[in-house]
């Protein structure tokens, strides 16, 4: 039981990190960025590429993992900014469907671009998590698992601080509410949108590296399902809402963990997407979405 919670928490923190970017981008430009899951995949491959270039394999060093994590975050952040600049910004005034289709195109480009470079077969991620651990309250916990969860939580805290307390974060929330009014405050809207893409993409990249180390293998389609899962998490929490994405991610991780334990692992995805459909049907604003009080 406790083990299921712990496993759910780990996987859930990956979902949460990816869902945050999904939700932030949706919040600020109302785009469902279907290429976002592939940024997660890119994060894993940036880590794989760098480590392989240095001839590293089968390492279990945590500091090394942190260095790679940081490097992947910066790289995927910049890639995210580039994608917005090239693919989405020119379509800012176009119908939403056009941008959505473009996002799917970007997703394919990233997936099959990586396939072209690294081939279709799964690769072993060079940094692994050590399997030695301690038994605690009936859970088997390893040090590196704790590191993953702490990093994920730390990243979320930093993000929450940026969005809630800083000038840039206020500008992000202002754009989400009324881009033109934000511009009248002197906000350079395009620059702030780029910042959001950087942050969102780097969080997804971080999750990709962490997942590479956690599962041990990576492939060019690994972002597809997690993209959908992160979307599900964002919807459960209330899309556009930061804490919603975190809550939704962890909740979805738990649901899957318990779902596969009770009904068998093959039902895991069915479980997740059934919840997506339930939420979209009965509570499309999610758990924390749309608490808007307005009076004119």
């Amino acid at each position: 039981m406790m083990q299921l919670i712990w496993n759910g928490l780990i996987v859930g923190s990956f979902y949460a990190l990816v869902a945050l970017g999904y939700s932030m981008v949706y919040g600020i430009i109302k785009l469902l960025n279907f290429a976002h899951g592939d940024i997660y995949m890119l994060g894993a491959f940036v880590g794989f590429f760098t480590l392989s270039a240095f001839g590293i394999s089968n390492e279990t060093s945590i500091p090394l993992l942190l260095v790679i994590l940081l490097l992947s975050m910066v790289t995927t952040g910049l890639i995210g900014v580039g994608i917005e600049r090239v693919a989405y910004r020119p379509l800012r005034r176009s119908p939403r469907l056009a941008v959505l289709i473009t996002a799917i195109g970007v997703s394919f480009t990233l997936e099959y671009g990586v396939r072209q470079i690294f081939g279709p077969n799964p690769e072993a991620f060079p940094v692994r998590l050590e399997s030695r651990g301690v038994d605690l309250l009936g859970m088997r916990i390893t040090a590196s698992q704790i590191v993953l969860v702490v990093i994920a939580a730390g990243l979320m805290l930093v993000l929450a601080h940026i969005v809630e307390r800083t000038r840039e974060g206020r500008a992000m929330r202002a754009i989400a509410l009324d881009p033109q009014a934000a511009q009248l405050m002197g906000v350079n809207v395009n620059r702030v949108i780029s910042t959001v893409f950087f942050i969102g993409s780097s969080l997804a990249g971080a999750a990709g590296v962490m997942a590479g180390a956690y599962y041990g293998s990576i492939d060019f389609l690994m972002g597809f399902v997690i993209g959908l899962k992160a979307f599900t998490a964002a919807v459960i929490g209330g899309i556009g809402n930061l804490y919603g994405a975190m809550l939704g991610g962890v909740l979805l991780g738990m649901l899957e963990s318990f779902g596969s334990a009770w009904f068998g692992g093959e039902w895991r995805d069915v479980f997740a997407f059934a919840f997506l459909i339930l939420f979209l049907t009965f509570k499309p604003t999610g758990l924390l979405g749309a608490r808007v009080v307005e009076r004119m």
Binding site: D178, Q180, A181, L184
Partner: peptide, 26 residues
């Protein structure tokens, strides 16, 4: 040169204080 738009365009879910802080963005 600061423009107060028609219809006020207050950031509705942000507090009064945050709205004022945004005025000082630059």
């Amino acid at each position: 040169l600061i423009h107060v738009p028609e219809g006020r365009r207050i950031f509705s879910t942000m507090t009064v204080h945050e709205n004022l802080l945004l005025g000082g963005y630059t």
